[in-house]
Computed example of a mutant assay.
Amino acid sequence: MLLSAPELLKDETRSVVVRAQVRGGPVPAVILKHFRDEPVCGLDDWAGAEFLTQRGVESGPRFLAGDVAARLFVLEDLGRGPTLETLLRGEDARAAHGGLIATARLTGQLHARTLGTQSAYELVRQALPPRPERVRVENARFLLENEGRLLRWLAAVEAEAAPGLHEDLEVIARTLADPGPFLAFTHGDLAPSNVLFTPAGPRLLDFEYAGMRHALYDALMWLVTLPLPDELVSRADITYRITLSAHCEAAQVDSAWARARATLALARTVNLFQWLHPRVLEEDREWAPGLSERAALLHHLARCRALLAPAEGFPGLAPTLETLESRLRERWTVAPFTWPAFRQEDG
Rank of each mutant, 00 (worst) to 15 (best):
C41F: 13
D45M: 08
L72R: 08
G48R: 01
L43W: 05
R36M: 10
G60I: 07
W46H: 10
F63S: 06
A70P: 07
G90R: 00
D44A: 15
F63G: 02
P82M: 06
E38R: 13
A69S: 14
A96E: 03
T83D: 05
F63H: 10
G48I: 05
D92I: 01
D67G: 09
A96K: 01
L72P: 03
D67H: 11
L78F: 04
V40S: 12
L87E: 00
E76G: 11
R80S: 15
T53S: 13
E91T: 14
L43P: 01
D92G: 07
F51R: 01
E58D: 15
R55H: 14
Q54G: 15
G66M: 05
P61E: 06
A95M: 05
L72M: 11
L84K: 03
T83S: 13
R94H: 13
V68A: 12
A93M: 06
R71F: 01
L72I: 08
F73A: 05
L87S: 00
L78K: 06
E50S: 09
G81N: 04
H97R: 15
E50M: 12
A93H: 03
F35H: 12
D67K: 11
L64I: 13
D45G: 11
L87P: 00
G42M: 02
T83F: 00
A47R: 02
A70R: 14
L84S: 04
G56L: 09
R36E: 08
R71E: 04
H97L: 14
T83H: 02
E58H: 13
E76M: 08
P39G: 10
G90W: 00
G98Y: 05
V57L: 13
D67S: 14
L88H: 03
L78I: 09
L64N: 02
H34P: 09
G48P: 06
C41L: 15
E38M: 12
G48S: 11
R89Q: 13
E50T: 11
